[in-house]
Design a binder for these strands. Structure first.
Length: 419
DNA sequence: TCTGGGGTCCTAGGACCC
DNA sequence: TCTGGGGTCCTAGGACCC
């Protein structure tokens, strides 16, 4: 039997900000999504004031004023660096770690001989001490149950942030106090369907017949219910699977109409996406580009996507930009106001196992060029050298009015201690 | 005025084949 | 009016996650 731990950072982005700005401690604080759109992280104080997850800023601007809520733009360089530090501490401490998201890790605790609660508390203390990030820990026989345990750990002050459901007499109680909508794998649509049928709690859900669940929720629903019953259906993966797609997209700070500005944005996105897959030693055989008018506007919408084949499969910025810009030209229509755009790289495969066609013509200079490109940007800093017009000032830049420093990833951002 | 970004998996249905 | 039956493969879209 496997024992799973789930370590989840509390209000992760807010906690990262607090590490470097202790004045935020105890004050209602939120972090906004890119373009300063919605609240994507809320301190407990902000939650208590009624700020909802993913709520647009303009909808609670009054609350911000009334209660002096501290508002920050997202600083993903900082968060992903802090995330790596947390994962590192866990990896040094637990037998095996699987990073699940920027703020969550599953642990394989099989074989741990000491008391699980004690082990959880030790992890909590160590992560807090070494990184400054507070975490909660849930422990159980399946990942889905570990998620339940973690959820309870967050809600219940008594737990001190650590809950163990392994062979626990409280398991049934735990499932009875967990709402169906809080179960991992049950989202908005399924919650509606379940509630309509009188299924309100995780326990209710667990007691539904398999046939009904399969019919209403497919094989995914079946997996979830079995996991709740204690049957391990997902398993532990210490080696992450290579990703299959990558996406770089942004909402624009202002509406954009001209093809030049869109070309600039698409060039920047394609550059980032290509760098992304080069780092992972992957190549793509399809690039897809999309543009969108404002989807919240009452005016008619236009949101086309165009895929362009790359042959041979590549991670070369030059080829990827060329394909993306070609796609953009095919879908761009004059006279529309665009609010968002993006570049996707699809069908990613390992660069060493890339399919090669008989008719592909490879230019050895391309390879040298991209190596030099990466080297210059590594030595001189990101964006020192660019393809096309990617380095020019642009009219589409996303809003980011309240961003903190890149404390841990840029020389200029390192905090200074004044004597 | 203002509304995120980045992923995964599953399924239904069409195209195509014999 | 009537209109094979299966297979496979691909894609779009819907559900979920953080």
């Amino acid at each position: 039997m496997t024992v799973y731990g789930l370590v989840d950072c509390n209000n992760f982005y807010v906690s990262c900000e607090r590490v470097f700005n202790p004045k935020l401690e105890g004050r209602p604080t939120i972090v906004l999504s890119s373009n300063d759109g919605c609240a994507i992280a809320r301190s407990s104080e902000a939650k208590a004031l009624g700020v909802k997850m993913a709520q647009p800023l303009y909808q609670f601007a009054d609350l911000v004023k009334q209660h002096d809520i501290q508002v920050l733009s997202a600083n993903f360089h900082l968060y992903s660096d802090m995330s790596n530090r947390v994962v590192q501490v866990l990896a040094d401490t637990a037998p095996s770690v699987q990073q699940y998201s920027i703020d969550e890790c599953f642990l394989d605790l099989t074989g741990i001989t000491e008391d699980f609660i004690d082990f959880g508390r030790m992890l909590q203390t160590k992560v807090l001490q070494w990184t400054g990030i507070p975490v909660g820990v849930g422990i159980a026989e399946t990942k889905t149950l570990a998620k339940v345990a973690n959820h309870i750990a967050k809600e219940s002050a008594k737990s001190g942030g650590v809950v163990n459901l392994v062979e626990s007499p409280w398991k049934t109680k735990a499932l009875a106090i967990t709402q169906a909508r809080d179960v991992w794998g049950i989202g908005k649509q399924f919650t509606k369907k379940l509630n309509r049928n009188g299924v309100m709690t995780a326990l209710d859900f667990m007691n539904q017949p398999d046939g009904w669940i399969k019919k209403e929720m497919g094989v995914g629903g079946l997996k979830t219910v079995r996991e709740l019953r204690g049957e391990d259906c997902i398993g532990f993966e210490s080696i992450p699977k290579p990703k299959q797609t990558t996406l770089v997209s942004r909402s624009f700070g202002h509406e954009v109409t001209d093809l030049d500005s869109l070309t600039n944005a698409i060039t920047v996105f394609a550059t980032t996406a290509a760098e992304d897959i080069r780092k992972a030693s992957l190549v793509s055989s399809t690039v897809a580009v999309f543009i969108e008018t404002n989807r919240f506007s009452s005016e008619s919408q236009y949101a086309p996507t165009r895929s362009v084949d790359l042959s041979p499969a590549t991670n070369n910025t030059k080829h990827i930009i060329r394909a993306a810009v070609q796609g953009l030209k095919e879908i761009h229509r004059d006279g529309l106001k665009y609010k968002k755009a993006g570049v996707m790289l699809l069908d990613l495969v390992d660069a060493d196992h890339a399919p090669v066609s008989l008719f592909d013509q490879l230019d050895p200079k391309d390879d040298q060029l991209i190596k030099a490109f990466d080297q210059i940007n590594r030595q001189q800093g990101p964006g020192s050298i660019n393809f096309g017009n990617a380095g020019l000032p642009s009219s589409w830049q996303s809003n980011s009015a309240y961003r903190s420093s890149r404390y841990t990833t840029e020389w200029g951002g390192i905090p200074v201690v004044k004597a």
